[in-house]
Design a protein around this nucleic acid. Structure first.
Lengths: 217, 217
DNA sequence: GTATGTTTCAAGCACTCGTTTGAAGCGAGG
DNA sequence: CCTCGCTTCAAACGAGTGCTTGAAACATAC
């Protein structure tokens, strides 16, 4: 007695399987098996495996990216130009909130994104690239304004680092990295995690320019 | 007229293919086709696809991890306890050097590691976990000594972020992330890249503790 | 009640996968 | 010359892949 539609149940099952075992390692038969529907339903509703993945990602991250841009808009239309911490919160918080709202499923989804981000076979790359292009551009520009003493290229580089920190921190929530730790790791709620990431990244973004070899000190 | 042994040519071809397209997406026939050898040669020399991957990773990262530990040993047996920057260099430099020495192949290999790190199906995780366990433990302990004002758990968390920055910076070398950038990105040599990463990460590691919700300030 | 468009189904298609097999090629030792 | 390991090879194995097909089930409209 399925309470959700076939389409939604496919999305739910695909999201979990893709995140747990990877896209390539998850067969359509596993997806439909977990969803309790027929294989052909995937091609009927989505057309292909790749389109299914696109739908899985979009369902979660279209709202996140919209929220990111909305928060950035709000910051920029306020009186004073936003500082680094505020920009970072606008970037990080919607992602963390969405994952938090999903509970355990959220940390799995985070791994899926991190995976695609580094995996990225040709067609998959485009899924994420088109998904994030606007967000990337807008936030880099905002950071350039907030960090006028940094050359633009350095801002781009450090924003990449920021995305790296985000991906890493998302991945480790569920990852067996805790087993590697010599000390007990306390469970962190979203606001706590956000606070820590903002502190770390803001300090990194504000770090003085490293001396250029061959240039004046 | 192959100049290298069959085993080495398989490793070379596998490394490139695994990095370019992912482990799952690379078939053994593609590997042996690129290497100019027979499919059965893989199972003769390595036993299975997973063992082949293990060999691909180990060939490059066993030396890196040995060098990391060696440099850390040298720092710790010197008179004064090492500072954060020195520890970071000992961690980051061997990896960057190895990748630099490999040239274009190096940036591909970096993507492979980043991929496995987030992908990590059950058996694959163990490949990397056993590979990095010692390094992880030793460097976290060194950082705890260099940052005595931070709680141990916070050091662990921030070292995770550090690894995230490393992975990200390795991935973006070759990735089409440049296309996302609104400004021209200058090509960075290894020392330059290292300098930037150390600055960024050291600042993040030294950031004051964020206020704890519900605790005293 | 019959016709229409949408959704679901079991079965099968052509293909690729990792792996195995048994024989051929090969250099060194007797 | 023959033999013995070691290495390489073409060919095939069974299983599983993404995807297609044609018919049944269903809901709605006439």
């Amino acid at each position: 007695m399925p309470s959700a539609t076939t389409k939604e149940r496919i999305l739910d099952a695909a999201e979990r399987l893709f995140a747990e075992k990877g896209v390539d390692a998850s067969s359509l038969r596993q997806v439909t098996g977990a969803a309790g529907v027929n294989v052909a339903a995937i091609h009927y509703h989505f057309g292909s495996k790749e389109e299914l993945l696109r739908a899985v990602i979009g369902r979660r991250f279209d709202p996140v990216n919209q929220e990111r841009l909305k928060q950035l808009d709000r910051l920029e239309t306020a009186g004073t130009p936003p500082d680094v911490e505020a920009i970072l919160r606008a970037f990080l918080e919607p992602a963390l909130d969405m994952l938090d709202a999903l509970g355990e499923q959220g940390s799995l989804l985070a791994r899926l994104v991190a995976r695609i981000y580094s995996d990225a076979s040709e067609p998959l790359k485009n899924v994420l690239m088109t998904q994030f292009r606007d967000v990337f551009t807008r936030f880099v520009e905002a950071l350039m304004t907030a960090l006028p003493e940094l050359p633009p290229a350095e801002v781009v580089l450090r924003f990449q680092y920021t995305a790296g920190v985000l991906h890493q921190s998302l991945s480790i929530i569920e990852l067996p990295v805790a087993e590697l730790s010599p000390v007990e790791l306390p469970a962190l709620d979203t606001e706590n995690m956000l606070q820590r990431m903002v502190s770390f990244v803001a300090a990194g973004l504000r770090a003085p320019l490293s001396p250029q070899p061959g240039g004046a000190a």
